[in-house]
């Protein structure tokens, strides 16, 4: 059994959620899928958030990459969709090593498959030639 404390981000209330995960309760959850109970939430959104957060937490990563020959030094980028939370730093490492030549435009792919997540990193700002 594992118990985790979370803060709900569904609304400004910020409910303190307690999430209990049990793996071996009479035949249920035996193949690695735990039984999850959420307490402390005051609406269904809190429960949904907690379930996602303990089973498959994901985030969109935003950063910037070096642009050469552009009007500014950095072009902002983001992962095209959310990636596993545990991959954030691996993703950043790859982003840090990217350098692109101006011009770049919103939506341009700078990394096709970031940190093995299958998610692309795309440009979020137009940077024109200097």
């Amino acid at each position: 059994m594992e118990v985790r404390e979370l803060t709900c981000i569904g609304c400004p209330l910020g409910c303190s959620l307690t999430v209990t995960m049990e793996w071996d309760k009479t035949g249920e959850g035996t193949d690695g899928v735990p039984v999850i109970t959420v307490t402390g939430n005051t609406c269904p959104r809190g429960e949904a958030y907690a379930r996602k957060e303990v089973t498959d937490p994901t985030r969109i990563v935003t950063s910037s990459v070096t642009v050469t020959g552009g009007t500014i030094a950095k072009a902002s980028v983001k992962t095209a969709s959310d990636i596993p939370k545990g991959k954030i730093f691996a993703c950043m490492e790859e982003i840090r090593n990217v350098s692109v030549a101006a011009p770049v435009h919103i939506g341009d792919v700078v990394i096709e498959n970031c940190a093995g997540t299958g998610v692309a990193v795309v440009v979020t700002k137009d940077v024109e030639l200097a």
């Binding site: 935003t62 910037s64 902002s76 983001k78 919103i106 979020t124 700002k125």
Partner: peptide, 25 residues
């Protein structure tokens, strides 16, 4: 917005999560 490269903009206006530069653009 040009320097607010994080996401979370535009949920009300465009019903999607944009970064600052995208929202501005």
């Amino acid at each position: 917005l040009n320097q607010c490269i994080h996401n979370g903009f535009g949920l009300h206006t465009f019903k999607e999560e944009l970064t600052g530069p995208e929202y501005a653009s």
